[in-house]
Simulated scan of single mutants.
Amino acid sequence: MEINISEEEQRQCFIEQWNNPNVFLVCEVPVFCRSVDLVTYDKKKKILTSIEFKTKNWKKAIEQVLSTAISFDYLEICIRKPKTEILQQKIVQCCTDIGIGLYFFDMETRKFEHRLIPQKVQKIWNVQKKQVIEFVEKGDVLCKKS
């Protein structure tokens, strides 16, 4: 039986399982003409990570996270774990080549596997990064755990 879950539900599961009290989670952060699904922000180190969630199209998740890359220190995607090892390896290799971090979401257990740690973004537009930091530091936009 196929289990369906929306991107929002997937993101909410991620937020509920997050266990790093030093890193804030902020949903729907505006960057350029779109919003990033989830931003993690380490206030002490001033590190921003963008995470895009997708339930089906992993290539679209990569495309979306790359579209705002110059605003962040790190980029990651979170997608439904593919059923085949071959497809899993293809996605891991693609993300490795680009330097994007990867979470696989197991639909049945609703658990996340941090399969690939992201590499630091090489070209960051500091003016834009500062705008994102100002937005996330407002404090009233933090994602809430249920």
Rank of each mutant, 00 (worst) to 15 (best):
I79M: 05
P82G: 09
R80D: 08
V127S: 12
K81L: 07
K56Q: 13
L142V: 13
K54T: 02
E63W: 08
K56F: 10
C143V: 01
K138Y: 07
K46R: 14
L38H: 01
K129M: 02
E52I: 03
V26R: 04
E76C: 12
N126L: 09
V121L: 01
E16T: 07
I124N: 10
I77G: 03
E63F: 11
Y41D: 03
I3H: 10
L102I: 14
R115V: 09
T84C: 08
Q89H: 15
K81M: 08
F135M: 06
I86K: 14
K144V: 08
I79A: 06
Q17I: 09
N19K: 15
R115S: 09
S71W: 08
W125T: 11
T109L: 06
S71R: 05
L75I: 02
S50C: 10
K90D: 11
V121D: 00
V121T: 01
N4K: 14
Q89S: 13
E108C: 12
F112A: 00
K138E: 09
I86Q: 13
I117C: 07
P118Q: 01
E28P: 09
Q122C: 13
T49K: 00
L116V: 03
E137A: 03
T55D: 04
R110I: 05
C94A: 15
I77S: 03
T68I: 08
I70W: 07
Q119V: 11
V23Y: 04
F104C: 03
I77R: 01
D140I: 12
E113G: 04
F112V: 00
I47C: 04
Q119N: 06
K129F: 03
I5S: 06
A61W: 00
E134R: 06
I15L: 04
Y74K: 05
V136E: 01
C27Q: 11
C13D: 14
N57I: 15
S50M: 07
F24C: 13
N20C: 09
E137C: 04
V29E: 00
N19P: 12
N57Q: 12
N126H: 12
M1T: 12
V92K: 13
K60M: 10
E8F: 01
S67P: 05
K145L: 02
E52K: 04
K120R: 12
N4A: 14
K130V: 09
K111E: 08
C27F: 02
V26A: 07
V31D: 02
Q89I: 15
N4W: 15
I124W: 11
K130T: 13
P21A: 00
L102R: 06
V26G: 03
V65S: 00
Q12C: 00
K60Q: 11
K129S: 03
D73A: 07
S50R: 07
K90T: 14
K44F: 10
T96M: 09
I47S: 05
L38A: 03
K123I: 04
M1R: 11
K145Y: 01
